[in-house]
Design a protein around this nucleic acid. Structure first.
Lengths: 177, 177
DNA sequence: CAATGTCTGTACCGATCGGTACAGACACGG
DNA sequence: CCGTGTCTGTACCGATCGGTACAGACATTG
């Protein structure tokens, strides 16, 4: 709920009035749970996002005995989490905004972890390291770009096409391409 | 100058105080030139961006007698305009923020024009239409993604590597790949 | 010179911002 | 029953928001 407010209005645009209205909590409650104010609310939202990705995507990519399956599951989870491109990436949006500095370290860590987890899975699947790192970077970059352009063009098919392209490249790499 | 303020602070974050300080213009001057206030300032910035891309990138892609050269020039212009990823795309940032609705039509038009211009150049260079449209979409998406992740990771090499990847795919398509 | 129109700084407006203070509502253990 | 700690609504704070009003500075005309 809190996360959706930040997604829809951004950090600056998510005023306490909006947050209060959408969550149904008065300022008293809000500041009871988040003594640090808006910054702590956003940090808590980032905590949730990081935890979700870590357990549902990054860890399987790093540890699943079947790395190829983990890579396919990652793409499926990505499509599901971002609602086929109709939902934006809050971390990416923060990266482009003025709050970037406030959460710089966490934003950096999120994308680095994603890229490294994909590279690790590719490596475990037998892909040469240089190729794995390059493909992982391309995959994460393409996903973020698709979220931007899908939101801009309101094109419901764009996100899926991007994921298909990544899937094809990953399969080719796994096959030894 | 105005554009840089919006780039650094976003639309909501670019308060009149900040704009006034950075431009050196008082409120009186600001509202003399932009009677419509902040929204008109942002619209004017978008005008400038659209004009720049239209004349420097989209038109050459559509009309240059040498489409292959225009495609290479497009990548070089992209690297230059976005300062190798150290500058963000204001239109993309707007697309992810709350101002998206205000400028929805222009944001849509910007990305559609970019994609279609690239596809047109590829088509004129002999690439089959389906392949041209797909590659154009991939290129624009990858560029936007690189701007997000480069900003997030503060990685100065990421943007260049992404452009290299796109260049290689374009060259392969031009060669009949 | 006076008159005109363009530009600019400043004072000010009501609204809203993030944040605080605090009194009461409520469930609980004694 | 009383006390205690958790939660919540509301009134309020100073600061800042986007925007307006307006008087003067200034160069350009006649």
């Amino acid at each position: 709920m809190l996360a959706e407010v930040f997604r829809e209005h951004g950090f600056e645009g998510a005023s306490l009035a909006v947050i209060s209205a959408r969550t149904g909590l008065g300022k008293g409650s809000l500041y009871h749970f988040f003594p640090g104010g808006k910054a702590e609310m956003a940090a808590c939202v980032l905590d949730g996002i990081e935890a979700w990705f870590e357990t549902r995507m990054f860890r399987p990519l790093r540890e699943d005995p079947d790395p190829a399956a983990a890579l396919r599951a990652m793409l499926a989870a990505t499509d599901s989490y971002f609602r086929s491109g109709q939902r934006i990436c809050l971390v990416g949006a923060f990266a482009l905004g003025a709050v970037r500095d406030t959460f710089a370290q966490r934003i950096d860590a999120y994308f680095a972890a994603w890229r490294d987890a994909v590279a690790a899975a590719l490596g475990r699947a037998g892909v040469a390291e240089a190729k794995a790192v390059d493909l992982a970077e391309e995959a994460v970059t393409a996903i973020q770009g698709a979220l931007v352009t899908a939101s801009a063009l309101q094109d419901p098919g764009l996100f899926g096409r991007t994921l298909d392209r990544i899937a094809a490249r990953i399969e080719a790499a796994l096959a030894g391409g």
